[in-house]
Amino acid sequence: MIESVGRWFREKLTGFSYAFNFFLFLLKETAHFPWNKRVGFKVLIMQIYFTGVEALSVIALISLGIGAVIIIQGIAILPMFGQGNLMYTILIMVITRELGPLLTAFIITARSGSAITTELGNMVISHEIEAYLSIGIHPVSYLGVPRLYGVILAMLFLNIYFNLFGLLGSYLVASFLHDIPFTDYLMNLVLALTPADIISTFLKSIIFGFIIAVVSIYYGFNVNRAVTEVPQNTIKSIGMSITLCIIADAILVVVTRL
């Protein structure tokens, strides 16, 4: 009993130590990436393409729907309490500050995080990682870092698109139901938008993107030799990414509201 507890603790400690060292190494390589003139840039572009461009339709649809629902409900309910102008504050609060970064993070986790883990895990099993090492290319630098940059940038830009479709696209839906001049709508939105909202949403995007990328890369390289490890690690990476994103979101909300 005591031996098994000790073994479990030693394995956890070893695993945590490995993860921490991996994280530090990834950070170091990430810092060096802009000065690295090797072919990693092409990997970065492809990663932004897969993570950002290909997810744009899903993001647009979701943000349009959420924005429309908020504005329709707001127009219907808030004027009853004489708080019609709060609709714009709620739009900014929900789309820009909260749901935008979080939903984008969930979508990227489901689409790209799982893909990164699976791809890297399969490369480990097929000994491609060893091949890179044999020719002097570090797999974390060449495969991991561009993916990290790609996911963070894609997350950042997708969040901007989420706001674009959520805030402006919702106007199109609302204009079918109510006669709201576009200039009034835009001016009220701008009045409701504060620098804190912009900083908060960008900060969240970068942190969520970083979490998703690091977790996905780590679990991808964490595969050892069996093919069955790939789906297991993929599931773990998705669960861990979502959990960490929600925790980070809660911390950021508390910090930005202090």
Binding site: I45, M46, I48, Y49, G52, V53, E54, L56, L153, L156, F157, I160, Y161, N163, L164, L186, M187, V190, L191, L193, P195, I198
Partner: peptide, 30 residues
């Protein structure tokens, strides 16, 4: 898509930056 990935990504970033820039300009003026 793969062949023109660079163009797609460039457009993707450009539109986002333009929107962000516009939002910042309007907010800063206001």
């Amino acid at each position: 898509g793969f062949r023109h990935a660079d163009k797609f990504v460039g457009l993707f970033i450009l539109v986002a930056v333009v929107f962000l820039g516009s939002a910042l300009v309007v907010t800063s003026i206001n």
